[in-house]
Design a binder for these strands. Structure first.
Length: 705
RNA sequence: GGGCACUUGGCGCAGUGGUUUAGCGCGCCGCGCUUACAUCGCGGAGGUCGGGGGUUCAAGUCCCUCAGUGCCCACCA
């Protein structure tokens, strides 16, 4: 058969051209969409960190978002998908510092001003790459509304929200033990820690008991404490036991002599102490442990900081230990204690050690003056929105993660001593805000808050938030209470928690491990449509996806199938001035059994795709369209149509078959479009249609909403 | 220490309130260049549904238990 259309589908000749067509049409912008479109449908793109190129997780999320947006756009909604990028405070800073390290420099060598300049340069480069990647995927984002979490207006909004909280008394400043990264030189919230199980030791140390309360020299007997961190004993200001612990009943109220420091410290009782751990007696270091700090507060204990911000022993410790690194100090202290015969025994002990999530440096807990957000009231609001069902999680089980975290939440430490971020708007403070403080405002600040903009009025609350489960607490929770606090309304109705893409071996995809796949490579190899379809095809289950390139190969074959089915239909209708009308004009009595069957299958497919997409079952939806098009339409109906056309008794019968062929094709393009936007648009542009729209993207759906 | 998931043909996965011969993609084996497509068509091989126990007329599908895998949460020092 001779045709102007090539036999095999060549995505390379299509995708960039079609994307430009869409951009020119302006239809990514809800204000430029044709028709009345009263109902809105909004998704705020989770702004990717500008730390580097997008990975498969982003590609998955972008695909899922775009499917929803295109589906709703076809259904006649006024759709907005708003793009942006996140400055990603500490992550980006660490990333740029890594680059500097290649030249043997630290950020301190450069100084703050130059360093920040360098980060902006980095932002410009990677921010640009990221946006290009979204375009390659076919994302129908409204580029006219793009935002960056540190653009001028956004920064103003962040300031506004901080002051707003502050005036309400929800933000306060306090000096207490916090998590400290000695490399980043900043505080960190609990969520920014990465715990690793490590084999360590449990040292049983004898603290001499003091007989009276005066003479340090007169000691009699010992109280033995068990600890994993002997070096912190330099800052001990008490020994604590559980009040119910009979073993120590007569010791409470007396004193012990802190070895090496030779200081008198009280023995107190506190319910926080677990009598079953170790000896039941615990050394209390209020400066370097939050629990000890709390014990210290209730017993009015002294707070002695012995580890500084460099991770070295401070001047508060005996001279021999001063300035030693924590690990060196530990070695020395154990040795010294052994010499004094004060180590009763050493046990093997494995426990979780906190590391900086970003730079993998061991975290120290030390006292520092920081800013906190009071969480109790905000947490209650956030909980209520989900309990009431006003915000729903999909899959529902992730609501448990959400509730669990909220139910024992602590105040949020929001100040950081890094350089890249939003400056805390208080005089004399050089700290910046936790990056999640600004991300939490994304759904409404990106729409114009604090100004009462038309966008805010039109598009807030948004419809769906789609993200990965690892940031439910970091981000989703905080967006919800921020939305409630500042907008008095939920920021979105549905939260779709998508799976995480693993390697085929079930390992996490990671650049550093070399297991990551760049979605752009897949797009170059198979096309964006095939890549999208292959990814979505795998989103069937309830847990993580082991990425399999085979499914993308399948996506590519599917595109080819669609292309060739089109060629067949086009050939059938090419012999006349045939025009495909959007409404099928064939009287029911003239339909053959085959005709009826395929029309019925079409309706069923439309319904089930709608149903599955409503429930965020993307993989199922993809399989429905695939099966319908390939098996019902191509394998069966197209084959049947050949004989129907050849054997038809009248011209009308022949025409009917052609009408049905082209009707099914056009309808299929609509259903397929959210999944495979490029090829379907390309074909649409070539079809002879009455009432042809400028783009398939804005065609009429099968029924009106 | 708690919690949430997962374990189905070689590989990656479906099997939604128990419904007849357990499906799909990729791979494999036959046969086909039939004028949409060989990036294809038709046909086929291949599974004791992680182990054990239970409920039932009937169980990948419900319950219990064991094992393995992955993830999340946690101020046992």
């Amino acid at each position: 058969m001779k045709s102007k259309i090539l036999k095999a589908y060549n995505f390379k000749k299509v995708e960039d051209r079609i994307y430009r067509l869409w951009l020119r049409s302006g239809f990514f912008n809800p204000d430029k969409l044709p028709g009345k479109r009263k109902k809105t449908y909004t998704i705020m793109l989770p702004p990717p960190n500008i730390t580097g190129r997008l990975h498969m997780g982003h590609a998955l999320n972008a695909t899922v978002n775009d499917i929803l947006i295109r589906w709703k756009r076809l259904q006649g909604y006024k759709t907005l998908w708003l793009p942006g990028t996140d400055h990603a405070g500490i992550s980006t800073q660490v990333r740029v510092e890594k680059e500097l390290k290649k030249q043997g420099k630290t950020r301190f060598d450069l100084g703050k001003k130059l360093f920040i300049k360098g980060v902006w340069k980095w932002k410009k480069e990677y921010g640009g790459i990221i946006l290009e990647q979204f375009k390659k995927l076919g994302s129908s984002l409204d580029w006219s509304r793009i935002r960056f979490t540190m653009d001028k207006k956004y920064s103003d909004a962040v300031k506004e929200s901080f002051l707003n909280y502050y005036k309400k008394g929800l933000i306060y400043k306090k000096d207490r033990p916090i998590n400290w990264c000695s490399r980043c030189k900043t505080s960190l919230s609990d969520l920014e820690l990465d715990y690793k199980e490590e084999k360590g030791k449990l040292w049983y140390i004898k603290y001499p008991l003091m007989k009276g309360s005066r003479k340090v020299s007169r000691t009699s007997g010992f109280i033995i404490v068990a600890t994993t961190r002997p070096e912190t004993m330099l800052g001990d200001t008490a020994v604590a036991v559980n009040p119910t612990d009979k073993r120590y009943k007569n010791m409470v109220g007396k004193y012990a002599l802190l070895p090496l420091v030779n200081k008198k410290i009280p023995i107190v009782s506190d319910r926080l102490i677990d009598p079953k751990f170790g000896t039941g007696a615990v050394k209390i270091t209020p400066a370097h442990d939050l629990k000890d700090y709390n014990v210290g507060i209730s017993h009015n204990l002294e707070i002695v900081q012995v580890i500084d911000e460099e991770g070295r022993i401070t001047g508060n410790a005996p001279a021999v230990y001063q300035n030693l690194r924590v690990s060196e100090a530990r070695e020395r202290i154990v040795k010294d204690l052994e010499k004094l015969g004060l180590i009763k025994k050493i046990e093997e002990f494995s426990h979780q050690i906190p590391y900086c999530d970003r730079c993998k440096t061991r975290i120290e807990v030390l006292p520092s003056e920081q800013w906190f957000v009071k969480m109790d009231r905000l947490a209650k609001m956030a909980e209520k929105e989900v309990r009431s069902g006003r915000i729903k999680f999909h899959p529902k089980r992730f609501e448990k993660t959400y509730f669990d975290w909220l139910s024992n939440i602590k105040d949020w430490c929001i100040s950081r001593q890094i350089w890249w971020g939003h400056k805390i708007p208080v005089k004399g403070v050089n700290d910046v805000l936790d990056t999640w403080f600004s991300s939490a405002l994304w759904p409404f600040v990106a729409l114009g808050w604090p100004k009462k903009t038309r966008d805010l009025e039109t598009f807030y609350p948004t419809d769906v938030l789609s993200t990965a489960r690892d940031i439910i607490n970091l981000w989703v929770v905080r967006m919800i209470f921020s939305g409630m606090e500042f907008m008095k309304k939920r920021p979105f109705k549905d939260v779709f928690i998508h799976p995480i893409i693993l390697t085929k071996q079930g390992k996490r995809m990671s650049k550093s491990l070399g297991t990551g796949i760049d979605p752009i490579l897949l797009i170059d190899k198979y096309g964006a449509d095939a890549t999208r379809f292959g990814i979505v095809w795998q989103l069937t289950g309830v847990q993580d996806v082991r990425f399999n390139e085979d499914s993308i190969v399948m996506g590519k074959k599917f595109c080819n199938k669609i292309w060739n089915a089109t060629r067949f239909v086009m050939f059938q209708i090419s012999d006349s001035r045939f025009q495909i009308s959007s409404k099928l004009q064939v009287s029911k009595s003239k339909l053959t059994e085959n005709d009826k069957k395929i029309l019925k299958a079409l309706n069923k497919t439309i319904k089930s795709v709608d149903g599955y997409l409503t429930k965020f079952r993307f993989g199922k939806a993809a399989r429905e369209v695939y099966n319908f098009f390939w098996h019902d339409f191509c394998d069966k109906y197209i084959e049947q149509s050949k004989s129907q056309i050849a054997n038809s008794k009248s011209q009308t019968e022949k025409e009917n078959t052609k009408k049905i062929l082209s009707h099914i094709l056009l309808s299929s393009l609509k259903i397929l479009h959210p999944f495979l936007p490029f090829i379907t648009e390309e074909i649409y542009q070539k079809l002879p249609l009455t009432n042809k729209k400028k783009c398939l993207m804005i065609e009429d759906w099968f029924y009106s909403r």
